[in-house]
């Protein structure tokens, strides 16, 4: 098969994005969700004009291809993804670029996930909320809450706090950490 000469190829943009999710999401699952979303938001005609393709996704960072004049539409499609199956996700575009290479080099950080800044397994904050630590990312801590009420109100199964919340608890308790 002959490749099209560069003057006849469609022009593209590459969107580097970062996804926050409550659990691990695979590339295939995200692709399916992306297509379902694009079709629901733009219809078949709009989706074909947008020329979307998820080129890479490693669970956190990814690259999405779109037509060069449809970046706003592609952003809107990414923004409307709120869950993949039962897993909650939130996607933010980090930057756009004209080539895959520059999108990767400029925006994607590899292996940059800081782990276990604090060593704790149980946390109680703000008086009433307590839970078991599921994961720690830098200053951010996700808890599996003991109480299900707040989970029902916000449709997320993890409670998100930061190390700054814990410091405040330590001070209030006169140096004796509450439930940690």
């Amino acid at each position: 098969m002959k490749m099209l000469p560069s003057s006849l190829r469609e022009r593209k943009r590459y969107l580097a994005f970062e996804a926050a999710s409550t659990d691990e999401v695979s590339r295939r699952e995200l692709t399916n969700e992306l297509w379902a979303n694009a079709r629901s938001l733009l219809g078949d005609v709009g989706t074909s004009q947008c020329d979307l393709c998820l080129l890479d996704f490693d669970g956190r960072f990814g690259i999405l291809r779109c037509a060069h004049d449809k970046t706003a539409t592609a952003r809107a499609v990414l923004a409307t993804i709120d869950r993949v199956g039962k897993i909650r996700v939130g996607i933010a575009v980090i930057g756009t670029s004209g080539t895959i290479k520059s999108a990767t080099e400029k925006f994607i950080r590899r292996g940059g996930i800081p782990k276990d800044a604090v060593k704790i397994d149980r946390v109680q904050i703000m008086g009433s909320v307590s839970g078991t630590v599921k994961r720690v990312l830098g200053n951010e801590i996700d808890l599996i809450p003991d109480d299900d009420d707040i989970v029902k109100r916000s449709n997320v199964n993890l409670v998100g706090v930061t190390v700054f919340d814990l410091k405040r608890v330590r001070q209030h308790a006169n140096g004796i950490p509450d439930g940690i």
Partner: peptide, 21 residues
């Protein structure tokens, strides 16, 4: 934006994410 105790994220967590965005 809704935070603890109504919803699941503490104000400081929401602030961290907002700053990143």
């Amino acid at each position: 934006v809704h935070s603890l105790p109504e919803c699941v994220d503490s104000p400081s967590r929401l602030k961290l994410v907002a700053k990143r965005y």
